[in-house]
Design a protein around this nucleic acid. Sequence first.
RNA 1: GGAGAGAUGGCCGAGUAUGGUCGAAGGCGCUCGCCUGCUAAGCGAGUGUACGCCCAAAAGGUGUACCGAGGGUUCAAAUCCCUCUCUCUCCGCCA
Length: 421
Amino acid sequence: MLDLKLITGNPEYVKNELKKRNTEIDIENILKLDEERRKIILNVEELKKLRNDTSKEIGIIKKQGGDISEISARMKKVSEEISELDNMLKNVEETLKNILLNIPNIPDETVPVGSDENANVLYKEYGHKPSFDFEPKAHWEIAESLNLVDFEKGATLAKSRFSVYTGFGAKLERALINFMLDVQSENGYKEIIPPFLVNANTMTGTGQLPKFEEELFKCERDELYLIPTAEVPLTNLYADTILSEEDLPIKVTAYTPCFRREAGSYGKDVRGLIRQHQFNKVEIVKIAHPENSMMELELLLEDAEKILQMLGLHYRVMTLCTGDLGFSSSKTYDIEVWLPGQNCYREISSCSNFKDFQARRAGIKFRNKNKKVEFAHTLNGSGLAVGRTFLAILENYQQKDGSVVVPEALRPYLGVDIITK
RNA sequence: GGAGAGAUGGCCGAGUAUGGUCGAAGGCGCUCGCCUGCUAAGCGAGUGUACGCCCAAAAGGUGUACCGAGGGUUCAAAUCCCUCUCUCUCCGCCA
């Protein structure tokens, strides 16, 4: 959520910044509503003061045995007026809040301006594309021939875009989860196991609601949503909290399954593990001081990169342009891993600085040097998407004979050097 | 799922029977100052958040709201009534 005062104070600036990300907002309407809001507050608070003062007088008069019928009748009218104004205020504030909750974040000034993903800018690269003396296969072929994943059973048990990991497939997935958690723990993130179901308030805190309800699996009966990422419970761990400055940055990590409806992506990535309704992810989250959140983003990116480096996977990092930025993010780096079986790079991690956008929604604050309360900055990144790491290993470490070599760093976790039939 | 108890400031805890002078006693903690070889103890002062208004602005001042959440009664609600949520205890069921 943007600061209302920022919008009313610099309407042109906000309008232009949002235009960069293809968002038009009705500033006039916001200004009008805010003015109305303040007018009502002024009015109703004056009446409340009158009522408070008079009520005290009534108490005194009554004690002295005086007559209060006339004055209390007068106050009854005042009270009616107050409740009318209170209702008006509530309406205006609700309308305003709904508008604000649907406005995306302002891009950081270092974010390249562009309308879509084609304008994303290469930030850095690691390693090289591996060369093969045979035609590398797509991971779904490898997974099926080695009996690592049963795609049909996933569809049978649930529906399409669900799959079943079997045998060494399941073991490899678990090995990756443990490996990632260990590395991120070493990187200074405190390990957390959060709920996988959260309520609407929590979803609103990080920006999934109200705008992206369509993307979420919901348990109607219990008014709970399956988390689409551990970012949601991890960040909201600090909702409605005033932290002390010394606590910052807070660093937490969690492995969770993630659930996404993938509404509107019919026909996209239908084969393999790329786009699933349920996938595993190790997430890293930071609550940072506003003064160094940009530096923290760089460090967080490095923490995510480290996993790929240790696994010996080639990747590149893209700075997302304004038009490709997620709703809540002010700046995002996507890490894209090389997939030789598909001859392309695919996103395996997304590292973002949300600045005070989520903090304002969720009420994540800290007390600064001057003892003033200030919104903290929130950041997160995948460290990494486990399913996509799994498939990247299959495609990058496949051998001519159909087997898959296990990256060195993973061997202690898996117990074998090579996965064969 | 059944029965009961409870939810008050950073924490503990009074206030709720008899509605008004209660943003809320007292204690602890914390901050600042004093005192003191050091520490402890002691003494003094301060110590919530949000929003509005005043102020060029910071500081500050002032007003409103907030005693789990929402609604109701009343001139007036921490206090009375209703609904909900959460916590605890006991019983049942269960990984």
